[in-house]
Computed example of a mutant assay.
Amino acid sequence: MKYNEYDDKILKHLQSLELMILKDFIKICEENDLTYYMYAGSLLGAIRHNGFIPWDDDLDVIMFRDDFEKFKKIFNSPNDKYKLLSIETEKDYFHLLSKLMLNNTKFEEKWVNQVDFNIGINIDIFVLDDLSDNKLKRSFQLKKSFLYNKLLIMSKIKLDDLPFITKVITHVGYHILNLFRIKPSTINKKCLSFLKKYKNPNAEYVFDISANANEYPQIFRKSDFESIKRIKFEDIEVNVPANYDYILKSLYGDYMQLPPKEDRYNHITETLDFGPYEL
């Protein structure tokens, strides 16, 4: 279990700030004709709770690669309120997802002392990439993408909250990558170049490359995302994939059933600082 029992007022305030970030993100998307969808726990929250999962402390959205690249270009300008955290903006950043971060706040996990960037309250922006229609090529693409994801993480941080053997392997990988001075940016460039080989507007399948260190990339049919439904999320309406049922079953199984407390997940933060947005 990776679960932090927040004081109720603190969690509600954190969620309110994440909702503010989401609203600003949606405004940018709508003004620039970009498509987004609620994703992962936030998609589940929209469907099951019409808002946040009660114990959840983050927000997840997902975009197709082309829309995300356009979003990055639009957002690539000075902004007093937000920063887009990505491999392009921070040399130590080690995720294949990006984060829209609220400036002058802190939402830091225990690995923060291993990197040279600050992380504030944010929403996660995942990306959908095309998969090959050829079964063998698709299997190769998934395996190589999984490897890139693990290498990117290992290039910057030592993972300690893993089973012993896995932890030893990741620590060895960390030291080898650092010994040969292989940077996250190098791995990221190779990964993006690899993904471009399979770019196909008519691809049947897409996938989320940015799975966690121990998870295989999530595969979906592109058609699952081709239509949008509008669903209530707290005090706004948000985009969800029309075939959200298939997506949520793929991610969570019987997703309408509340999990027992020992199977609930959120982030174990070292530092949570609301900065100028204090309670």
Score class of each variant (00 low, 15 high):
Ile182Arg: 05
Lys183Pro: 00
Lys183Ile: 10
Ser185His: 07
Ser185Arg: 13
Thr186Phe: 11
Ile187His: 06
Asn188Tyr: 15
Asn188Trp: 12
Lys190Pro: 03
Cys191Arg: 13
Leu192Cys: 02
Leu192Arg: 15
Leu192His: 09
Ser193Leu: 06
Phe194Cys: 08
Phe194Thr: 12
Leu195Gly: 02
Leu195Tyr: 11
Lys197His: 09
Tyr198Asn: 08
Lys199Val: 01
Lys199Phe: 01
Asn200Ile: 04
Asn200Gly: 02
Asn202Leu: 12
Ala203Gln: 06
Ala203Leu: 09
Glu204Cys: 09
Val206Leu: 02
Val206Phe: 08
Val206Gln: 06
Val206Thr: 07
Val206Asn: 08
Phe207Ile: 04
Phe207Arg: 04
Phe207Val: 05
Asp208Lys: 08
Asp208His: 12
Asp208Ile: 13
Ile209Val: 15
Ile209Phe: 13
Ile209Asp: 02
Ser210His: 04
Ala211Lys: 01
Ala211His: 06
Ala211Asn: 10
Asn212Tyr: 14
Asn212Met: 07
Asn212Ser: 14
Asn214Cys: 10
Asn214Lys: 11
Glu215Leu: 12
Glu215Ser: 14
Tyr216Leu: 14
Tyr216Val: 15
Tyr216Thr: 15
Pro217Cys: 10
Gln218Asn: 12
Ile219Leu: 02
Phe220Gln: 04
Arg221Tyr: 14
Lys222Met: 00
Lys222Gly: 04
Ser223Leu: 09
Asp224Val: 03
Asp224Gly: 01
Glu226Arg: 12
Glu226Ala: 03
Glu226Gly: 01
Glu226Tyr: 09
Ser227Cys: 07
Ile228His: 07
Ile228Lys: 13
Lys229Asn: 12
Lys229Leu: 14
Ile231Trp: 02
Ile231Thr: 14
Phe233Leu: 03
Phe233Gly: 02
Glu234Ile: 05
Asp235Met: 01
Asp235Ala: 01
Asp235Tyr: 04
Ile236Phe: 01
Glu237Gly: 06
Val238Met: 04
Asn239Lys: 02
Asn239Gln: 00
Val240Glu: 03
Val240Thr: 08
Pro241Gln: 01
Pro241Met: 01
Pro241Lys: 03
Ala242Glu: 12
Ala242Leu: 04
Asn243Pro: 06
Asn243Trp: 00
Asn243Val: 09
Asp245Glu: 13
Asp245Asn: 14
Asp245Met: 04
Tyr246Asp: 09
Ile247Arg: 05
Ile247Lys: 00
Leu248Ala: 09
Lys249Gln: 11
Ser250Tyr: 03
Tyr252Cys: 01
Tyr252Pro: 04
Tyr255Lys: 05
Tyr255Thr: 03
Tyr255Glu: 05
Tyr255Val: 05
Met256Asn: 01
Gln257Ile: 15
Leu258Cys: 03
Leu258Tyr: 07
Pro259Lys: 09
Pro260His: 05
Lys261Gln: 12
Glu262Gln: 14
Asp263Ile: 03
Arg264Gly: 08
Arg264Ile: 10
Tyr265Pro: 00
His267Ala: 13
Ile268Ser: 13
Ile268Asp: 14
Thr269Ile: 15
Thr269Lys: 12
Thr269His: 12
Thr269Asn: 11
Glu270Gln: 15
Thr271Lys: 14
Thr271Cys: 07
Thr271Tyr: 12
Asp273Ser: 13
Phe274Pro: 08
Gly275Thr: 09
Gly275Met: 08
Gly275Arg: 08
Gly275Tyr: 11
Tyr277Ile: 02
Glu278Gln: 11
